[in-house]
């Protein structure tokens, strides 16, 4: 019976956390009018969350593109289809790797930083201090981070895909001798705006909402101790990664029937 009770407790705890996360999301959305009056808060967070993540996204994008170029060339050349290397690299990046890898890197860099910062603000009573200064911490601290995360993710994914395409070009065209014009022309003719690009943007937007929401909730809901903050950052990375991979399958299934 012990295991049954433990299962029940875990279920109740999960439901309670899910409920709190949803309430927090609604509370953050309520802070949107206040954010519109103070766009500076959003710009600050766009810098902290988006701009400071650019380096890891750019470097990863280039290397992922280079690996795709290398692997793609060796497989395609077996069938004499190396001319389609540009399509393969671009489609892989825009549809899947761009949004997914960006979201995983985002969770590891910006998401964990966000959880730790909010958790420490809670542990050092800064959030309580704001409340006692008659400032709503959900609107003042959390809403700008949520919106900045949602805006940043598609932009970072686009940067990742763009640099990945150039990485593939560098290896395929620059090192392995694929024709330059063919690389770009095939890509231009075969990549569909709606099916590939827009779907990729939709995916990264959804990942942006989910990853930022998870990061903020974990920080805000953590036990205000050093151990609690550490656990919150770990949970942010683990939960975000699992959510991104799971949602990617669901979204892909919906988008491509």
């Amino acid at each position: 019976m012990e295991w049954l009770a433990a299962l029940g407790r875990a279920g109740l705890s999960f439901s309670a956390r899910l409920g709190r996360a949803n309430l927090l999301f609604v509370a953050m959305l309520r802070g949107l009018p206040a954010l519109l009056r103070r766009p500076r808060l959003l710009i600050e967070q766009m810098f902290a969350i988006g701009v400071l993540t650019v380096l890891i996204i750019a470097v990863s994008g280039i290397f992922v593109g280079m690996v795709l170029g290398l692997q793609g060339y060796h497989i395609l050349s077996r069938f004499g289809a190396e001319a389609t290397l540009g399509v393969m690299v671009a489609a892989s990046l825009v549809r899947e790797l761009g949004p997914v890898v960006t979201a995983l890197l985002f969770a590891g860099r910006a998401g964990s930083a966000m959880s730790a910062e909010i958790g420490l603000m809670k542990a050092t009573e800064q959030l309580s201090g704001l409340e006692m200064m008659a400032v709503n911490p959900e609107h003042r601290v959390l809403t700008p981070r949520l919106i900045a995360g949602i805006i940043s993710m598609p932009l970072l994914a686009a940067l990742f895909s763009m640099l990945g395409v150039y990485g593939g070009w560098f290896v395929g065209v620059g090192l392995l001798g694929v024709d330059d014009g063919t690389y770009w022309a095939q890509m231009q003719s075969q990549i569909d705006w709606n099916e590939d690009v827009v779907n990729g943007v939709v995916k990264s937007f959804v990942f942006g909402v989910v990853c930022t929401w998870i990061a903020i909730f974990q920080g805000y809901d953590c036990v205000p101790t050093s151990e609690g903050v550490s656990r919150a950052t770990t949970r942010t990375v683990v939960h975000s990664s699992l959510a991104v991979l799971g949602l990617d399958f669901v979204l892909t299934a919906l988008m491509f029937n």
Partner: peptide, 17 residues
């Protein structure tokens, strides 16, 4: 919140931003 504007609180840690 209006009432809190008339109440100050000094936290043990200071709670400075």
């Amino acid at each position: 919140y209006r009432l809190r504007m008339r109440m100050g609180m000094l936290f043990q840690s200071g709670a400075l931003l």
